[in-house]
């Protein structure tokens, strides 16, 4: 009937592709796939490799792992010195534990502040939600570095916060906040709060109000209804938000290096120093590998939830 001959013609570009055993569809997967393999996955293998090398005064500053021994035998020289170093020098253990502690506490603080905010936004009149949400995202579009820097001026000994509190008469002597754990908590909560609020908002907004009404109708008081209905149903948001804060916070570098002091060692800054100041690439690599090992479980958890959420959205 009206099937034109043209639709039976194969275009020349398609024929060209299929000569290489590729469809256009295959190309759509292949290009980003190859990119990520090359620039995301293989680099980890190289980090692993170099963590087993020995520091050397050379360019690049490490020894080769593979060697062609005499007689053409390929020998592998694995050097565990960097990892042994991590175990023996307590600085690293302290830094790892401190990073985990700081990331954990910051995540909890983010959740405590972010949950009521996300809840408030989700329950606001519909016309308010957009602007309120925009105001959460807005700071994110301005420089992260500068926003962290702003806190130096506020938290300093002779800074704005202390001046304000002394003026109010709350305190007599200035508080020592900057360069302590507290200033790092403030910095992390401040920078990562949007990452907590957005997934929380996404789940809370979808929540059916009639569920709470049903709970109230069945005799649950507001607090009880919240604990029995809202909280469990917003669990996916809580998990996603917490992981989005916790994982990057463990390896955070900028915040501890601007707001932290000598007693607030975090592993991101340690890695940075090993690399840039000590130029010890094998130890820096070993630090990175060890950090990855700490984060593998949370990262996989994050992926699992991400995948599940996409599946749920499909339904």
């Amino acid at each position: 009937m009206s099937q034109p001959a043209s639709s039976l013609k194969t275009s020349s570009s398609r024929r060209l592709l299929s000569r290489f055993g590729l469809s256009g569809r295959g190309l759509v997967v292949l290009v980003p796939y190859v990119w990520l393999l090359l620039f995301f996955l293989i680099p980890f293998a190289i980090v692993l490799k170099i963590s087993f090398a020995e520091a050397d005064i050379a360019i690049p500053p490490y020894t080769a792992l593979l060697d062609w021994a005499e007689g053409g035998m390929l020998t592998v020289k694995l050097n565990f010195a960097s990892f042994m170093f991590l175990l023996t020098d307590s600085l690293y253990a302290v830094a790892y534990l401190n990073s985990l502690k700081i990331a954990f506490v910051s995540t909890v603080l983010c959740l405590l502040l972010g949950y009521p905010m996300a809840y408030g936004i989700a329950k606001a009149p519909a016309s308010w939600r957009g602007p309120l949400l925009m105001l959460i995202i807005l700071p994110f579009w301005t420089s992260f570095l500068i926003r962290v820097y702003a806190w130096i001026g506020i938290l300093k000994q002779e800074g704005l916060l202390n001046n304000f509190l002394i003026w109010l008469g709350v305190i007599d002597t200035p508080l020592n906040i900057l360069y302590t754990d507290v200033s790092i908590y403030i910095g992390i909560v401040y920078s990562y709060l949007p990452f907590m609020i957005l997934p929380l908002y996404a789940t809370l907004e979808k929540l059916d109000d009639t569920l709470l009404e049903a709970a109230a109708d069945l005799g649950a008081r507001p607090v009880k209804a919240f604990l029995a209905v809202t909280l469990p149903l917003s669990m996916p948001g809580i998990v996603a938000g917490s992981l989005l804060v916790f994982i990057p916070a463990v390896g955070e570098f900028v915040i501890p290096s601007l707001l932290g002091g000598p007693n607030t060692l975090m592993i991101g800054a340690v890695l940075w120093n090993e690399f840039f100041s000590n130029r010890d690439w094998p130890v820096a690599s070993a630090v990175a590998i060890a950090l990855l090992l700490f984060l593998v479980v949370p990262i996989m958890l994050f992926q699992y939830f991400q995948e599940k959420q996409q599946e749920a959205a499909k339904q």
Binding site: L36, L37, L38, F39, F40, L41, I42, P43, F44, I46, V47, I50, L243, L244, I247, P248, V250, G251, E252, F253, G268, L271, W272, F275, W281, A284, S285, A288, L291, L292, L295, P298, I299, F302, Q303, Q306, E307
Partner: peptide, 22 residues
């Protein structure tokens, strides 16, 4: 899927170091 979601949370020091070594 893993390579797409992991960079969302990967600490920057790790990404930076690994890319430099690459």
């Amino acid at each position: 899927g893993g390579m797409i979601t992991a960079p969302l949370v990967m600490p920057e020091v790790i990404t930076g170091l690994s890319l430099l070594l690459l």
